[in-house]
Amino acid sequence: NVLLRLGGDGSQSDHDASDPSGLYDVFFRIGGAALGKATAALIVNSDNTILDDIWAWRADHGNGVGWTSNTSDTGVIVNGTNVTAYGLFVEHFQKYEVIWNGDNGTDVFFQNEMPYDVPSQAAWMEAPGVDGYAAFKVADGVTHFNGYGMGSYSFFNQGIDIFAANAFEVPSTLPAGSMRDLLTIFLDVSHGKGGILNVINGVGGSSTIANPDVPVTVVSYP
Rank of each mutant, 00 (worst) to 15 (best):
I54K: 06
G66Y: 13
F89G: 02
G7S: 13
N157P: 09
N70G: 14
P215H: 09
T49Y: 11
I185E: 09
T81A: 10
N112M: 05
A139F: 03
M150P: 02
G204I: 03
V138F: 03
G31A: 08
N48H: 12
D213N: 15
M114L: 07
G7L: 12
L197Y: 08
A59G: 14
N101M: 07
V203C: 13
G147F: 03
Y96K: 00
T217C: 12
V90T: 00
P175E: 02
A165S: 13
I185S: 05
N201K: 11
Y153C: 05
F109Y: 10
F136E: 00
V130F: 14
Y96E: 00
G64W: 11
T143I: 10
V83T: 07
S206F: 07
V44Q: 04
Y221C: 09
V76E: 03
A33G: 13
Y148T: 15
A34D: 12
G129I: 14
I50P: 02
P115G: 05
Y24D: 15
T81I: 05
Y133T: 01
L88E: 00
S206A: 15
Q121Y: 06
S172I: 07
I43E: 13
V83K: 12
Q94T: 02
A134Y: 03
N166V: 06
F28P: 11
Q12Y: 10
S13T: 14
I209P: 04
D103M: 03
G102I: 00
D161A: 12
V76I: 07
S178A: 14
Y148S: 13
G102Q: 00
D14E: 15
N82K: 12
D140N: 08
D213E: 15
P215T: 15
Y96W: 01
S18N: 08
V130D: 08
G75D: 01
F155L: 12
T39V: 11
A167W: 06
F89A: 02
R29G: 13
G177A: 04
V214C: 12
A41M: 04
M179Q: 09
G204R: 06
F89S: 06
K95N: 01
K193H: 10
S152C: 12
M150G: 05
T71E: 13
V203S: 14
G141Q: 01
D25G: 04
V26D: 10
V189Y: 14
A56C: 13
D181W: 04
D73P: 08
G151D: 11
G10F: 13
R29W: 03
D25H: 04
G132L: 11
W100H: 04
S172Q: 01
H15P: 08
L23N: 11
S69F: 09
A122E: 06
G75S: 03
A123P: 08
F168Q: 01
I160N: 04
G102C: 01
V138Q: 00
D140K: 04
D25R: 06
V98G: 00
L88K: 00
T74R: 01
F186V: 05
D14C: 09
G205N: 10
Y86W: 14
P128L: 02
I200N: 10
R5F: 11
G102H: 03
S18K: 06
K137N: 01
F145M: 02
D140Q: 06
A17N: 10
S18G: 07
L197V: 11
Y153Q: 07
S220G: 10
K137F: 09
